[in-house]
Design a protein around this nucleic acid. Structure first.
Lengths: 140, 140
DNA sequence: AGGTATATTGCAAGCTTTTGCAATTACAAC
DNA sequence: GTTGTAATTGCAAAAGCTTGCAATATACCT
């Protein structure tokens, strides 16, 4: 499990600078329950450090994604949510009718990942997926 | 395979009005090679009918999606692309390193669809998916 | 500690998509 | 063919996210 310290370590290892903005953004993500939006991160950061710009939040999120430290999931809300990769992966079944969200164990996608790797040589990044459709109730 | 006539039929069946805007938007999608963006549809439509607004394009696309007549795919370009549902479904493997796109047969996702239905009662809408990751070349 | 290179930031503008609202128009009923 | 009404549109503004550029600040080197 990654802790803020591990993220900081990974940043310096890759030659990225440790700015106060980055440290606060990382803390906000780590302190969250796991599905935090850019706007929510931004709100937390400016509470302590009001001159930070939201574009810095987006740029930091992009960097953390690139380093594999956070995953991004689109729940179809019109905004995307972020999850610290160290807190484990899981997926979501999102009902387009009633909006219900059911969590899905990561293992369900392992066979697909294996097929893609075996038959196409493709390493799929399926770490935090939202699958849309209809739940049991709404399918009737 | 749906033709414009079928789409028109489905619209009237559901009580939606046949406006010239809708008819032109439907034609643009049907005439495309299958992965057309909202901006491209808009450009085709205003060539003949200049006062049409792009929000009408987006609203029509939303309606066609809801009726299952078009599918929407995010290739990670910062804009989404549309495909007439009648022209068949397929998926895409998008390499995040080099941008290569490999087409994937629909059948590869059938086992996943079945597991979700059997174990969660969830009818997944997996008609035109983009899966991100790394292609063979970029994985080394 | 001080100087330097360059990564990073803030700002403003832009892009894609969505939404509220008033004006318009398709379609059904007469 | 007229009329009524509710669906649809255009417009303008806004939401979410990205980007170019000049100013700033981190980390390295001495």
């Amino acid at each position: 499990m990654n802790q803020p310290r591990d993220i900081v370590k990974k940043l310096t290892e890759h030659g990225y600078r440790l700015t106060p903005q980055r440290l606060m953004i990382v803390s906000a993500i780590e302190d969250s329950d796991g599905h935090i939006s850019a706007e929510e991160i931004y709100a937390q950061v400016i509470a302590k450090y009001p001159q930070v710009n939201i574009s810095t939040v987006y740029r930091t999120l992009e960097l953390l994604k690139k380093l594999g430290l956070v995953t991004e999931t689109d729940f179809g809300e019109g905004r995307v949510r972020y999850h610290p990769a160290g807190k484990g992966h899981h997926h979501h079944l999102v009902c387009q009718e009633c909006g219900a969200i059911v969590d899905l164990d990561e293992s369900v996608l392992v066979p697909l990942k294996n097929v893609l790797l075996r038959e196409y040589g493709f390493s799929a990044d399926l770490r935090h997926l939202a699958i849309f459709g209809r739940c049991v109730k709404c399918s009737q």
